[in-house]
Design a protein around this nucleic acid. Sequence first.
DNA 1: AATGAATGAGTGTTCATTCAT
DNA 2: AATGAATGAACACTCATTCAT
Lengths: 189, 189, 189, 189
Amino acid sequence: MIKEKITKHSIQLFEKKGFSQTSIQDIVDALDVTKGTFYYYFSSKEQLLMDIHLQYIDNLLARQQVIFDNTSLTNIEKLEKIILLLIKDIKEKGSSGRVFFREIRHLNNMNTSKVKEKRNNFRFRIEEVVQEGIKTKEFQSDLRADIIAFGILGVTNYSYNWFNPNGDVSPEELAEIFSKMILHGIVSE
Amino acid sequence: MIKEKITKHSIQLFEKKGFSQTSIQDIVDALDVTKGTFYYYFSSKEQLLMDIHLQYIDNLLARQQVIFDNTSLTNIEKLEKIILLLIKDIKEKGSSGRVFFREIRHLNNMNTSKVKEKRNNFRFRIEEVVQEGIKTKEFQSDLRADIIAFGILGVTNYSYNWFNPNGDVSPEELAEIFSKMILHGIVSE
Amino acid sequence: MIKEKITKHSIQLFEKKGFSQTSIQDIVDALDVTKGTFYYYFSSKEQLLMDIHLQYIDNLLARQQVIFDNTSLTNIEKLEKIILLLIKDIKEKGSSGRVFFREIRHLNNMNTSKVKEKRNNFRFRIEEVVQEGIKTKEFQSDLRADIIAFGILGVTNYSYNWFNPNGDVSPEELAEIFSKMILHGIVSE
Amino acid sequence: MIKEKITKHSIQLFEKKGFSQTSIQDIVDALDVTKGTFYYYFSSKEQLLMDIHLQYIDNLLARQQVIFDNTSLTNIEKLEKIILLLIKDIKEKGSSGRVFFREIRHLNNMNTSKVKEKRNNFRFRIEEVVQEGIKTKEFQSDLRADIIAFGILGVTNYSYNWFNPNGDVSPEELAEIFSKMILHGIVSE
DNA sequence: AATGAATGAGTGTTCATTCAT
DNA sequence: AATGAATGAACACTCATTCAT
């Protein structure tokens, strides 16, 4: 209960001020508890950050898996759904996402490796979808699936930095615009 | 001379360890000078960071301007050249770029505004190219030029995080792959 | 039962890491109980240390008393037996002894006084034996019994720091070597 | 200058309150400087302790060396002079000595090794003197020189704990009493 | 008899910055 | 142009102790 509250508030603070600019004091002050309480639940500031990272990426991976395993979808549809998954997440978990993308540097080597492995898994899944789509002729035969995967992640992840999900474009609309761009390009035929 | 050396080494250190994890002591130690010397050339650590930001974005803006002003280019060509400009920069100024994208948070409000304005200008130029291309029918008529500009920047900026310009894909090849994806999509026609 | 287990394990920890470097957490972790349990049995960390001190010195005093009261022994024999008592204790209660000698500083004033008084009593007994031996002409007539007592304690107590009772010299042999040195010196006659 | 003042005051404080009970704050408060100043001169609290240890043991070793190298002395005289050296030091450097004997535990492994090696060297020199004395028949032929060396150090080092050099017994007198005890024993012939 | 949550004062250490020289 | 001494506020983290249950 308190642990969850600490995590939740920390995410807000890390997003607003950055991990290193946020002190444990800032965190516990925001919750009206003492530092001792923080260290009762977390062994270090870094462990809290690791918790946040794992919660975020594990959740994404699980939801990506559902899409990936759905055999009734074409690869085009799978890509669209993965893009939508990421964009919609900005509304639901935007703060976590921004912390996730920005603060990984503050994990130690071992933790960085763990998180990067999971991050890579997410990317490899996208790469696989592209690869499969090439086989089924949904996609062009000469694509570099690995690089396309990076391209797709670039488009979606960068959105965390600028997209306001409560603005005039809804997450669903944004996802559709990006899907269209990636799938069909912007040049008129 | 010394100032340039400080800037150059700081970029390396900021890239490797992060801005807040790099102390002034680290910087001056790397150059075998003393802290007094640092403060002779820079009024604060933040000012050094601001210098790095301005050098980076001003250089990019200038080079973008040349492309933008070249009336002999189609809008498609302009987009291609801007993408190439950004990707090639990873090889030439990768460290600066990574510092630029990661450490803006450590500027104060006024400096952040100045840098963001320049950043936005860079984006507006891309948006204008897209807008022009729509008018000339090079691009599809129903595009959201603003969002496409964000998409393009997502693809290129994210590359700073993963692209190894000395690997098996050259900057020129990467730029071409991304240009093709953005212009024509990945779906086979 | 539990109290004894806490005391016993604490002695090991205090010996290995030192009193102030050992936290209550360390102690209870080693026993798989919680801090509450510790404070059920001990009112404070210091009281535990005091317990250890008292157990150690009271035991020594009692065993010294037996020697002291044995009227069938000469004073030389009494000295030999006291030296043997202390050296043999290294094998049996080495950890306690080391804690006893090293950590008295961490007792408060009142407790320090109590322990020092008992320590002094131990020393006074040795002094008395020397004094008696002077009267009986066993010992040289011009000895400073008080200082000789300190000398004897120096030899034996310092052994706690270096003597390995399981090495090539047994406690009995060591006690004999030291007895001989103190009684007869090292110069060849 | 300031560094020396810090060291000097720290020795007093460490002696009175113990190393771990003395905070950096205590030290700098006593000198009316700030913690920053402390860390300008010392990289850590432990390094200060190491400095104290090295100053103490290096000084002792150097003075022991002079005695050791003096070929005009018999081995008996060398022992007497080494004992006097240690006892007189209580008056001159008593605080350092007490810190030296009590706080070695607070050095890390590498530093402990360094200090212990020097400590051992001091002891080995005593052992050598005893060994030489056995060869020259000054000392009894069946002595365990190594253990006798420990015995001598026990007598002298323990004096740091109780001897008041300004009391009714002077350092010279104490050294003579102990020399006599060690050389000739206490039993009347 | 024992727990587990919570406290709060304290610890060693870091570091951007200042300033007389 | 450059130094080196000094500052002081902040920081992550520790820990003996308390107490309701």
